[in-house]
Design a protein around this nucleic acid. Structure first.
Lengths: 217, 217
DNA sequence: TGTACATCAGTGAACGCGCGTTCACTGATGTAC
DNA sequence: TGTACATCAGTGAACGCGCGTTCACTGATGTAC
């Protein structure tokens, strides 16, 4: 047997406990934010002593790193699933919003105020370019935008970030617009900046999404 | 004499020390973020003992509240000054970016990930509607957008947040677009999400700003 | 199947730290007569 | 101008807390012969 790397009972137990740790960590983050994440509190909640967690994560920073990785993976998977179900760029936009609303602090962990001393792990760039690829494909599949934008010329020369995707500059521009505009509405909504304004954030989001899908209709 | 409320030497000293406290607080926030703000550390940096600060702020939360107020006031003043110098909406956009870049953590204190247990003070709404007024006036002064948007009809019925400003729905829509789009690019830039992409954030910002100023050119 | 050994999850005590906050106090500054 | 009193900024000790992390250890689980 020995199918995937590790399958002994001990190793299965290990990954199971690791999973429970990150699960509790997410609960804690959802409640009090990432800066309040505490190894001791997680251990207590699991009925273990604090030092026990050091069998599974070498430090608090390493746990956060794992959470960041999980968040990226989760978003990537959400988008890929939606895409596989036939969602176009508009569908991916709504999938993104759903993912963000499901756990605002998870969204902020990735796209929010950077944690002071913390530096994201290297390997997230791999998953992040997976996300980009899914979105770039959806951007490409849309009816072409036609007119070349001033930024388009610039993007022709600065396309290295596109993970080798052979998209024309208008598509790259559309991707960037998709990203920044949706992040704009979404992060303000999640931070509660529309509260008390009696505005439905869903409508604002939809309007911005439309502006990306059909810029000049 | 006794011009403005308080002018005795003691009171002048008080406001001076208060000012130095918030100044040090800003330095600390700029370095390590808002969640790392520590009264004791500020006191030490000022050559005072920790408890001394309690003569000036009743608690850590009250200090943060004052910082939030200062941030709002500072942004409001920046925009008003620009506006008074003849800046149009485009000019205000660049003023906003300049203000944000001058101290990213200050920007995040107001528009970033909300601090877990903390609730913003009531009186910021006053300053925040001052900001809104400045922007709404600049939006109104622009060449009219003409076409009524779908969201416009909705905004006609939900305009209470506009601080009594008699702007037509297209102008309200333009204001919202200004706010959310610029926040989108800006917050991603400040959080370092364009780093490593070899993109000039200034160009992305300018492109988004253009999209607000001349939506269908 | 049974014994000897290695692996490793988890414990409890401890270290050192910095935090916010309280309290009783000293000493300087301002006020009233 | 001088004295008596009130105000108030700042100190130092202390409280209680929770944090991340280390260390020597027990005891259960797995491995080799």
């Amino acid at each position: 047997m020995a199918a995937t790397g590790a399958n002994t009972p001990r190793e299965r137990y290990r990954t199971q406990v690791r999973a429970e740790i990150t699960e509790r960590a997410w609960e804690q983050i959802a409640t009090a934010g990432a800066s309040a994440l505490s190894l001791n509190a997680i251990a207590k909640q699991m009925g273990m002593s604090g030092p026990a967690l050091y069998r599974y994560f070498a430090s608090r920073d390493e746990l956060i790193t794992e959470l960041v990785r999980e968040a990226y993976r989760s978003l990537s998977e959400t988008l890929r699933t939606a895409s596989a179900s036939g969602a176009d760029l508009g569908g991916l936009g709504h999938a993104l919003r759903g993912w963000a609303l499901a756990d605002p602090q998870r969204y902020f962990l990735v796209y929010g105020t950077p944690i002071p001393g913390y530096h994201a792990p290297e390997d997230t760039t791999a998953i992040s370019s997976e996300i980009m690829t899914t979105l770039l494909e959806a951007c490409t599949a849309l009816a072409p935008d036609g007119a070349a934008t001033p930024l388009g010329a610039y993007l022709e020369d600065h396309r290295d970030w596109a993970a080798g995707h052979p998209a024309p500059p208008e598509v790259l521009h559309r991707f960037l617009t998709f990203w920044t505009r949706l992040h704009g509405v979404l992060s303000l909504e999640l931070a509660g900046h529309f509260a008390g304004m009696d505005l439905d954030p869903a409508l604002l989001f939809a309007a911005e999404l439309d502006s990306v899908l059909a810029p000049r209709t």
